[in-house]
Nucleic acid binder design. Structure first.
Lengths: 343, 343
DNA sequence: TTCTCTACTGTGAACGCTCACAGAAGCATG
DNA sequence: CATGCTTCTGTGAGCGTTCACAGTAGAGAA
């Protein structure tokens, strides 16, 4: 592409101008700019005043050219973009990351890898070192772009445990298993004993961990496992509806269902009500995510809230640390049971 | 902030390496990279082969340092971020802009101006020339950040007509007035004559233009204007409900309402149904936006669709043109009537 | 031949910054 | 008094490009 500088903008002051203005050398100005070690208070003061007077802003390109880093990070979304952009949690995540990065003066580059062409371009862009690190939102495991970045040694922080990638990848995730435990304990505390579950797909962290939490709590409560009470969906509303129907057909006197997503839970509610059952009197329903679907449902869903705001700040913290040379890290954040009307 | 290069990444090949590999000079490689004018086919071929072999990617920082442009643009959202991030149309816009820019190999920097601190930082960042232009999403008119950018001569394209800013600002917008005309004509064609309107706030383009379209069509159809049929809301569902109640109190035999947003239209439906009126038999309701609220409503809303995908690509096109030296431009795009069950 | 014109190629300088290094000054220690 | 150490400062080099300019070769015209 061609971009020519359009008129109107004066060329900004350089570090040279500031140095002259402050009566010091370029080196001293640079030192003030980067931490201010080994500068006398008098010089620092003089430089700062000159910066204020001239309105100087560092030229990041020149700095990047010599340091080799870009002081910017990419926010990479691979796979089905519609689904993510429609997900309010994703929006919270994107917003949170942008703001957390802004606090460190690090710009966020939004990268959407939809087509193969985009994947190639983005991979090249990142591995060429045009960003220092990547915040990764990838639904399915074993993402090729992510794998390539990991192999290239690009600092990477995933959102949710990346199943496919090696253990060398940092990630930040909600404690799915513990959230599931909380919900099932809650259902038990209500006196329910024939508790069904509609899990997510077996290749998603949510699917695996949430089901595991369910099983753990039932086992430790001495409730005997009944595999007829376990079905799985694909996080869609329709699959929740179908799942609930299968459960009802197998275990008509089921008195509670733990559903691995709010959207599926909406489908479960529909199926239950169509079968003439009252919620929560006959069957209690617990969701997961605390999405808008939870309050849009009737009755409003009891659900598990994931701390998306904290997830975003933690992702940024871990990524910046890793860019700074620290080792990859995994952060698991606690969830919260939100009690509403469906239990 | 401090970022040190973490191990693992080799330093990438430079234009020098490519030149040596291809047996030509840096200048020739550079010419191939930028358009390929004044290079012999043989040299071009040789350079391209060398680029492929070495996996060379241009160092944008070095290029930017000398050209003075960054080859990147900012996507700036000022004002209430929650509202925008929850708006699916905003998500389509953000996604569309990112993809359209990616096709030109231009990265998009997401900038959220929430706090005053962020506003300052972003303004400095942009006016320092760290982006070549800005895609602006600003709800209210006379935004101070936008005004400052305009004054600094930064190429700017707004989404929706910016009322406060001077005429020197490019913008891309849907044809609000024509959309409103279509809807009111549609209501007239259904035989309705006592058509109410719930407009948006008078300081929003949507509010002003949509009301104007309504008035125009009624006038040209020879229906006498009745100011009792005009109320305004703030785009919220509650304000739609309140507006409908006021309309019904003033004109009980109103037989249609044109509502300036789908969300408000939901409120209008609620109020109508509570008053015992059937939609569309007694009162036809037309919305605006074609948001998910439109299909979530019952009955599903007839509404006006704004071409958000085209708006995003046009914004990018106009911005890049302006960065390339062209004059600011205004683009108005046609809307579309989406007929559903509420009329 | 000689000159001009076109098509192409190479070279040095510059963009604005950081970094390594050398040096100066002040102060304590041998 | 020399020596070392610490704190501070200035200087030159160089990061990887593009750009202006100079230069070459070949074709065609005078």
């Amino acid at each position: 592409m061609t971009m020519s500088n359009t008129g109107g903008r004066r060329k900004p002051p350089t570090i040279h101008d500031v140095a002259r203005e402050a009566g010091v050398s370029r080196g001293t100005v640079s030192r003030v700019l980067n931490g201010g070690h080994y500068v006398s208070p008098a010089a620092a003061e003089s430089v700062n005043a000159a910066i204020r007077r001239t309105g100087y802003v560092v030229n990041r390109h020149a700095r990047s050219l010599i340091t080799g880093r870009s002081d910017s990070v990419g926010f990479l979304l691979t796979e089905p973009q519609e689904r993510f952009f429609e997900d309010p949690n994703f929006n919270v995540l994107l917003r949170g990351c942008t703001q957390a990065l802004a606090a460190h003066d690090v710009p966020l580059l939004l990268m959407l890898a939809g087509t193969d062409d985009e994947r190639r371009r983005i991979t090249r862009y990142i591995t060429a070192g045009h960003v220092d690190g990547v915040l990764l939102v990838s639904s399915h495991s074993g993402d090729p772009v992510a794998e390539e970045l990991r192999a290239a040694g690009v600092p990477l922080v995933a959102c949710g445990k990346p199943i496919g990638l090696g253990s060398k990848v940092s990630y930040v995730a909600a404690d799915d298993r513990d959230g599931a435990r909380d919900m099932v304990r809650h259902l038990l505390a209500l006196g329910r004993r024939r508790i069904g579950v509609v899990t997510g797909p077996p290749d998603t962290p949510g699917g695996v961990e949430r089901l595991a939490g369910y099983r753990e709590v039932l086992a430790e409560a001495g409730v005997e496992a009944d595999e007829r009470l376990v079905v799985s969906g694909d996080y869609s509303r329709a699959s929740g509806e179908a799942g609930a129907e299968r459960l009802l057909a197998r275990v008509p006197d089921m008195d509670a269902v733990f559903v691995a997503s709010d959207l599926m839970a909406q489908g479960v509610l529909t199926a239950l009500q169509r079968s003439g059952r009252r919620v929560p009197e006959d069957v209690a329903v617990g969701g997961f995510d605390d999405s808008p679907a939870a309050v849009a449902a009737s009755p409003e869903l009891t659900t598990i809230r994931q701390p998306w705001d904290r997830i975003s700040t933690e992702m940024v913290r871990v990524l910046l640390a890793q860019i700074g040379g620290e080792d990859p890290a995994a952060v698991i954040l606690p969830t919260e049971l939100v009690k509403r009307d469906s239990t």
